[in-house]
Design a protein around this nucleic acid. Sequence first.
DNA 1: CAGAATCCATTCCGATACTG
DNA 2: CAGTATCGGAATGGATTCTG
Lengths: 146, 146
Amino acid sequence: MTTTPSTDVPVVRELAQRHGIPVDRGCAAAEATSEVRSVLDRVGDKWSVLILGMLSGGPQRFTELLHGIDGISQRMLTLNLRQLERDGLVSRTVHAVVPPRVDYALTDLGATLLPPVLALVEWALENTTTIRDHRDRFDARGTAAG
Amino acid sequence: MTTTPSTDVPVVRELAQRHGIPVDRGCAAAEATSEVRSVLDRVGDKWSVLILGMLSGGPQRFTELLHGIDGISQRMLTLNLRQLERDGLVSRTVHAVVPPRVDYALTDLGATLLPPVLALVEWALENTTTIRDHRDRFDARGTAAG
DNA sequence: CAGAATCCATTCCGATACTG
DNA sequence: CAGTATCGGAATGGATTCTG
């Protein structure tokens, strides 16, 4: 994160222009780029996508998420939920009961993010074998080099 | 990424089934999930997407990428290119000339990854303002709380 | 139950120096 | 030119403890 300095990526430049974002030469929409990165970061966040996926089935409480997402720590779940909430992708509803009950749900915005993300997941599923093959061959070359 | 233990995410489960991947209960395609994650990781990799974007305009040599992607270090460029090459997303062509000349290009596989990724970028561009607003309001709440 | 706070091992990554 | 190798600071994230 920090100050992602943006870049002269033609494709992004083109998309930015299509969205009416001014592109001064040498930098494809500097402002927009960091915003874009922050979204991409979230997708790469390892847990965020899983959380979004969990919530696609309906609201869940904290513990349900904690147990549903195998391997996530309490800390990471909290942190990720805060991020998602901050971005307006997930809503947090505190029920004033005891013991406390907090429900997390996809917002409308969050719901619109799901399709692009799932397209990516689908791409990954489609190409799992191909990628594994490539990796094996690549690794074999490196090993055989000696 | 160590052993990403996979998860019981309904959407992923559904997608996995659609792709004929066996899903034993309690775990949505454990094997597939780590593979999926590794793809998502790459997308979140901060630089990989930029590199892919750069290459979408045609082959580039090492230095062109280095200068074209503002802020990337030589080390990171090398590392990222290796990853992308390993996955078969990018090809590396060494020309036997002096001084050395190495061209990087999108493979066919890499080209198929671009649309889903760009869909994500486009989503981000479309919702930049909305997200920024959410963040501002969220941060304001936190700050005002004192 | 849902979290905040602290501690600490691991990993990441930029800067630098060196090479074919 | 296109890397590789090494070092050290910074950030990441799990485990644990404490709270309303």
